[in-house]
Amino acid sequence: MQKPLTYLASVALAVSLALPVAAQDEPSLDTVVATVNGTDITLGHMIIARTTLPEQYQQLPDEVLFTGILDQLVQQSALADTFEGDLPNRVKLSLENETRSLTAGEVIETVMAEPLEEDAILAAYNEQYTDAEMGEEYNASHILVETEQEAQSIKEALDDGADFAELAREKSTGPSGPGGGSLGWFGKGMMVPTFEAAVVDMKAGAVSDPVETQFGWHVIKLNETRTSEAPALEDVREELELQLRQTLVQSRIEEITSAAEVDRSASEGLDPALLKNIEWLE
């Protein structure tokens, strides 16, 4: 009795191996991943759900996200099927606002995707960089101490030939002290006003008298100055294109809104405080 069963099983296995594997469609947005009470949940539903997650959740492993999102959509579908009666006003209005916002967003995306003329990019570059006056940049070092007396003593030591970097490492209370007081290169507006004013008035190689700021007393050495150079077009192309597209979008918004038939008269005379009537949504 045992042999026939074994034989039949072997034949069935051989036949199954000989059959062609059924072709499966490539996954797409319409690929159904679950069905709840006859309603399909697709891969597209899962993808859009993932995009709305906070960034920290989007970093979770794919298998964790897949299971979690599918569970959530299944639960939501099951719960939604049990709802009876009319949807609350807050839900209806939210859906209308969301549809309006997403549809308007598609128009903006279309405008953002429009090709830009190279002449427009070049003109924007010239306006911001080539034709603009490039500012001065400064390379300075400083020694920061708590009192004017300490700062004056340091200045006198420097006038007598002491090494600035060594004194900074020994005396400065600022974070640049261990590095010999070096602040590197900086432009206007990057330092507190009093400090910046002292640097601007100095010549390269000079050491300042004590300068007071909210951080304490500084003795400053201006190492060198330079005029900032315009970046290469390709280095700022992406930034310029974004600026041009944003300007184009704003212009298109104003153009479309101006052409629309808009009647705001019904809003005149209404108390702005009416927006606080949250209870109306219930």
Rank of each mutant, 00 (worst) to 15 (best):
V11F: 10
A266T: 10
T194P: 03
S265Q: 05
P4M: 09
A34Y: 06
Q76L: 13
K221V: 06
A104C: 00
L281K: 08
Q58W: 08
E146F: 06
P4S: 10
I220F: 06
A197Q: 14
E63D: 12
E109Y: 10
G179P: 02
A123I: 11
E136Y: 09
K92H: 05
E109Q: 15
R252A: 12
G269P: 03
A140D: 11
V91F: 14
N37W: 02
A18L: 12
E63N: 09
S153Y: 01
T67W: 02
P231G: 03
L17P: 04
A157G: 12
E55I: 12
L87A: 15
L5I: 12
L73A: 04
L87I: 02
I220V: 12
L79S: 11
R237D: 01
Y125W: 06
L13D: 01
V219Y: 08
L274R: 12
E55P: 00
D131Q: 11
S141A: 07
R50W: 03
L79T: 14
E156F: 08
P231Q: 07
F66N: 15
T39P: 00
V211P: 00
E98H: 13
L19P: 02
K203S: 05
E224W: 08
K92Q: 14
V15A: 15
E63G: 03
F186E: 02
A230C: 09
V236I: 10
Q24W: 06
E117R: 04
D86L: 05
V11Q: 08
G181T: 09
L53I: 04
G174E: 03
E133H: 07
Q58N: 08
E279N: 14
L93S: 07
S77Y: 15
E136L: 12
N126V: 05
T99A: 13
Y125Q: 10
P231D: 06
M191P: 01
N126S: 11
L87Y: 13
Y129F: 05
E224V: 09
L281G: 02
S251A: 15
I108M: 10
E268W: 02
R252C: 00
S182P: 00
E98A: 12
L144T: 10
G187C: 09
L13P: 01
E156K: 15
D263P: 01
E196D: 11
G161R: 04
L65N: 01
S208F: 02
F83P: 03
D209P: 01
A113Y: 05
N126L: 05
T173A: 04
E148P: 00
A259F: 07
E239Q: 13
A124N: 07
F83Y: 13
G44N: 07
N37L: 07
